[in-house]
Design a protein around this nucleic acid. Structure first.
Lengths: 117, 117
DNA sequence: CAGCATCTTTGACGTATGTCAAGAAGGTCG
DNA sequence: CGACCTTCTTGACATACGTCAAAGATGCTG
């Protein structure tokens, strides 16, 4: 990606016509691509899956579950947070608990899927 | 990604339980991530969008439309083909025409979306 | 056949990304 | 307060990725 790095608020809800409706503008394509990139990693897919299935987990639960360092989990969570796919951590006792945001995932799909929604 | 590069046939139709159903296995997560990665680029999003909207286009149409070299378009198309999102090129006259594969996009969404389909 | 147009491959370059170890913050509990 | 635990940040490193120019393929056209 040797192009200028764009500054985009990926936390804001995605909002553009579906990919299949018409040739997508450069800006919209960038929005979509950034969110997809946030999910385009095996570890992050597993993190989201764990959070969706279990509801609420902390870093120390997630790290052993996906087999990486807690530092790495922390990094991935921050990527997912920046894309609005995961909630801000909520401190409770000595741990910080995270949640997935199913709506964000659904919104992304609605933009991508040519048939469904 | 300093891990071993996995060999996976991403052309085969994706086939695993939705992300939200249960904690996803490492292998399934990899499958999903690889396909997402294929789409997680602004140029490739626009290419898919163009192909979906216009139906059928050749490299020499696509290159100026997205603003990159034809060599680059060719590279992106091969990535999309490897992920089953775009059909093999079909030679006709002096051009090679490509098509998007909406079903592949839909299938990916069905795995990802926790609510919709 | 010779020349041309389109498309793909190769090589090279710079940037981005995923990972970890080590250290810094921030909060908890005795 | 002071020892401790969990989480986040920083720095460093190797690999992957997007891009283009140039060269190679492949098929059309005069």
């Amino acid at each position: 990606m040797p192009k200028a790095l764009p500054v985009i608020d990926t936390t804001a809800p995605i909002c553009c016509a579906p990919v299949a409706a018409a040739p997508m503008s450069e800006a919209d394509a960038l929005e979509v691509a950034l969110r997809l990139k946030a999910l385009a990693d095996p570890v992050r897919v597993r993190l989201i899956s764990l959070l969706l299935a279990e509801g609420e987990l902390c870093t120390c639960d997630l790290a052993p579950a996906v087999g990486v360092t807690e530092a790495t989990v922390s990094h991935h969570l921050s990527v997912l947070k920046k894309s609005g796919l995961v909630s801000d951590g909520e401190r409770r006792g000595m741990n910080v608990y995270y949640r997935a945001w199913p709506e964000a995932l659904g919104a992304l799909c609605r933009v991508i899927d040519p048939s469904c929604c």
